[in-house]
Design a protein around this nucleic acid. Structure first.
Lengths: 336, 336
DNA sequence: TTGTATGCGTTATCAT
DNA sequence: ATGATAACGCATACAA
């Protein structure tokens, strides 16, 4: 391994000079700097991240948290898209990405301890159980954090605009003549709460009554549970003309249940999803849904986090709202 | 930050003693060790990964490479499942996961340099362009590597059994009476080559003729291109009774094309996919496909890599074949 | 059984 | 403009 010392010997200068030259310090003569840089390149020098982290207290490494527990893991397209974009943006800015979790090997650490152990300059919490004390600890620590769809006091967060998104969807089906709308939602998280409230508020504003039996709980990303909810809804005396699903994937469970009942989409029943993952637009019929801009979410998260890391003195916590867009698709029929 | 020095002061022993006690060295008295460990816990001591890496030349960090280029990125369910399982197993064994890529920030590094810079103890290459010289460099370096579905000399690799998998699929549709089988495959990688050869070989063994126009190239994970291939196949004078798709997702492109032609699955045309991702079993009809055991692949990869890292002297490169399984699904009709 | 000394590779401070 | 020196936190060879 080539170190700064090797270069200093080769160039006949001190290690300090080499370090300065390599880091573009202003107090090194242009020609010395050039000679050193060339030698470094020629010898195949690579900085040692560990040594640097130890000395500077900065690792140029940011942790990401995609909870393994709550089913919001990286194997869902929405989250993997976010991971991809946060990774791309972080790398562009010179940072690497490391996963943060609980219990590494023998040592039992919580999230904060893990991040600390790895000298993470910051952590992006994309999906987690925000009621977990371990998450609170991390988000009230000295480590910069950015959370997705959940806010901690004096912390930055990226907010996918659930309220607007749901309102947009409701208005869309309303414009297509629907007045009897069922709503299947996911587990009761704060995101769910926002979407449900927005659904109810928009319905109220439009003069749509939502009977209690039209609102059912299922599990995010679990087609089976949404299938069951769909069945319950179809057994009602007064069937809705349109069903909202917790997310695009859950819709698939509803789809097969509707088929079992011999109902066609959107001929007999209209449906909408949520997320707008690529899959939803590859299905036929194309799903009517609201696309959350996963790429922008990841990008903004990385930007916000690194901004805080690099400018702690001028940094102000902010909530960045990322707008999505309606994907009209073909699963909402105009029954006006 | 609490360091070993703090603990040594608190306990009235030397830093060396603390270090030894914390690492379970045999030459520390039981009671001293206990006292030190308790104090460490009480004071909230955490080891510093950077310092440790610098001193020991071991980072307990392994790099993963999920190429951004070839569309084999983490946003495909198959790869994200592998990532999840390699992460879980690595963490269980005390290792963290960091993404390896090209060009971090301003410095332009290749994969090898990046891994070196981060002191990765090893790298798992899950999806990459194996013809890229940068990959060869990494896989011929001193850094332990494990590759997926591609072998380098004197290196370990995990091989998803494409030959067996394809043979199983062919025999399955054969048993269901199919003799006119079309084959849409992905870009010509070594995996593709194996699958295609196995397809042809099994067909030959079963006495099935495969006319050239029944074999078409598409792009992995791209429903649109598989849709186009499907169209071309449907325009043939002699239509096949069964179509093989490059992967489960690609099948969706075929599905909508078949629908456009008013053909039902499997009533008019039978189809099979490849991968067996969860999505494939949530669709209706359930896709007949071959499931690659993503969880086991990731687990074996982590095991193999860490085994090499921790026992370099007794280590022998090996190719670990991971068997998959046939998912019969409902898209192959018995026309016998 | 415990302690002393040293160095891993780097950067930062202060001299020169 | 350059260099000497110390320090970051830790583990280890060796001395006591």
């Amino acid at each position: 391994m080539i170190t700064i010392t090797d270069i200093s010997r080769e160039c006949g200068v001190s290690r300090a000079t080499v370090s300065k030259a390599l880091n573009g310090a202003p107090d090194i003569s242009a020609e010395t700097a050039k000679r050193i840089r060339e030698t470094a390149k020629r010898m195949g020098y690579l900085p040692n991240a560990a040594a640097r982290a130890l000395k500077m207290g900065r690792s140029y490494n940011i942790g990401v948290l995609f909870s393994d527990a709550t089913g919001g893991g990286i194997s869902h397209e929405y989250f993997s898209l976010i991971l991809e974009s946060v990774k791309a943006e972080a790398e562009r800015l010179g940072y690497d990405i490391t996963f943060i979790s609980k219990d590494i090997g023998a040592m039992d650490m919580d999230y904060y301890e893990h991040a600390k152990y790895r000298n993470c300059d910051g952590v992006f919490i994309a999906s987690a159980d925000f009621t977990d004390p371990a998450i609170s600890r991390l988000c009230t620590s000295e480590i910069p954090t950015v959370t997705l769809d959940y806010s901690f006091d004096s912390r930055s967060s990226i907010i996918s605009d659930n309220v607007n998104g749901m309102e947009t969807l409701v208005r869309f089906v309303y414009e297509n003549g629907h007045r009897k709308i069922a709503f299947i939602h996911g587990e009761m998280t704060s995101v769910t709460q926002k979407r449900l409230a927005s659904f109810r508020k928009t319905c109220a504003a439009l003069g749509i009554a939502v009977p209690p039996e039209y609102v059912r709980e299922a599990v995010y990303h679990d087609p089976r549970s949404s299938g069951l909810a769909t069945r319950a809804i179809l057994e009602l005396n007064e069937r809705p003309t349109c069903i909202f699903y917790p997310d695009d994937l859950s819709f698939l469970g509803g789809m097969s249940e509707l088929e079992k009942h011999g109902l066609s989409i959107p001929g007999d029943v209209s449906v909408v999803g949520y997320d707008g993952i690529p899959l939803s637009q590859v299905l036929r019929p194309r799903l009517s849904t609201y696309r959350q801009a996963a790429e922008r979410i990841g990008e903004e998260a990385a930007k916000a986090l690194i901004d805080e890391i690099e400018h702690p003195d001028t940094w102000i916590p902010q909530q960045i709202t990322v707008e999505g867009e309606l994907l009209k698709g073909d699963t909402v029929r105009n029954i006006g």
